[in-house]
Simulated assay, not measured.
Amino acid sequence: MEPVTTGLSVERVGPSVLGGGLLDMLLSVDGERLPGSAARGVRRSRRAGPPWQPGSWRGLSTTTREAWLSLAFHLREPGPDRSGGVYHLDGRAVEDAAGLHCALGAALNGPGGYYGRCWNSLRDCLGGGFGVARPFALVWHDFAATERELPEVVDPATGRCLPEDVARLLEQWGVTVVRA
């Protein structure tokens, strides 16, 4: 049997605060070496800098798109919000909720941009501090295609389906949504 590489390193070992001959260990992990890590390729590509091509998240698995969103959140550049303007979301390649959030982040903050990774974080972004502040306009191209892809994805807070609930939420917060 071959040994399993975990990527864990022992940083410190010492007597446990619980006593009784127990030991406390401090372990560290290199995320790149975690087996089965869906984010491995995303982290590797993001190390070279943000993606410059729109839609770089397309074709990734749902788990990898979720990792993409997590990295986009942690790697975003803080700066002042900008309001106004017209932004364009390409709804043709949205296959799941993570893809919708990737598309929204890219539409509002450029390739690899972040504007929420779940329902609650989208609401947080609409409150300001994440690049684009309301009011602004979002032209959602191929809205009907997004609706066909996501008919069963439901917002647990409202019970409504994507993407219509996202469009309504944006409108409730003062965003003009054009369903094209």
Results as ranks from 00 to 15, higher is better:
Y115V: 07
H141K: 04
H74V: 09
V153E: 15
L104S: 08
T146M: 09
L71M: 12
R168P: 06
R12I: 08
E164V: 11
L89M: 06
A157Y: 12
R58E: 11
A93Q: 11
P15F: 09
Q53S: 12
S9Y: 13
P151C: 11
V86F: 03
F73Y: 12
L100S: 03
G105E: 01
T62S: 15
E171W: 03
F136T: 04
S121R: 14
G14I: 06
D165S: 11
P78W: 11
C125N: 03
M1P: 02
V29M: 13
R58L: 05
W119T: 15
Q53C: 13
G131V: 04
F136A: 07
L138R: 05
A93W: 08
G55S: 05
H101W: 15
G128Q: 03
G159K: 00
G129I: 11
L89T: 07
F130E: 01
R46P: 06
T64V: 07
F73R: 15
G19N: 14
A144W: 01
P15D: 15
T63P: 14
A38G: 01
H74L: 14
A167R: 05
R44S: 12
S16W: 06
R46A: 00
V17Y: 03
V175D: 00
G99F: 13
T5C: 01
A106M: 04
L18I: 13
D90V: 04
V4H: 02
W173T: 15
G55A: 04
G129P: 14
S121D: 13
L26N: 10
V86Y: 01
D124F: 14
R82T: 13
Q172P: 11
L71K: 06
T64L: 08
V42C: 10
P80L: 03
M25V: 15
G59A: 01
A133C: 08
L18Y: 07
R82F: 01
V86H: 06
E152V: 06
E149L: 03
G19V: 06
Y114L: 05
G127D: 01
L22K: 12
L71F: 10
G129W: 12
G14N: 07
G79Q: 03
L34F: 06
S45E: 12
L104Q: 07
L150W: 07
P54A: 06
P54G: 10
L26E: 15
G99T: 00
L22W: 13
T64D: 15
T62A: 14
D81F: 10
W68D: 04
S37M: 09
R33D: 13
A145N: 02
E2H: 14
F136Q: 07
L34Y: 02
A106Y: 09
A72Q: 05
G14R: 01
W140T: 09
P78V: 04
R43H: 10
V94F: 12
P135R: 06
W57C: 01
Q172G: 14
A167F: 02
P135K: 05
F130K: 10
L69A: 02
P50K: 14
V153S: 14
W57N: 03
G14L: 08
L18W: 11
V17P: 15
Y115Q: 05
R33Y: 09
S83C: 06
V86D: 15
L162H: 01
L126H: 08
A137S: 14
C161D: 14
L71E: 13
V175S: 02
E66H: 03
S121Q: 13
L122Y: 04
M25H: 12
L170Q: 08
G112A: 03
T158N: 00
F136L: 07
S45Q: 14
P78I: 05
T64Q: 15
D142I: 04
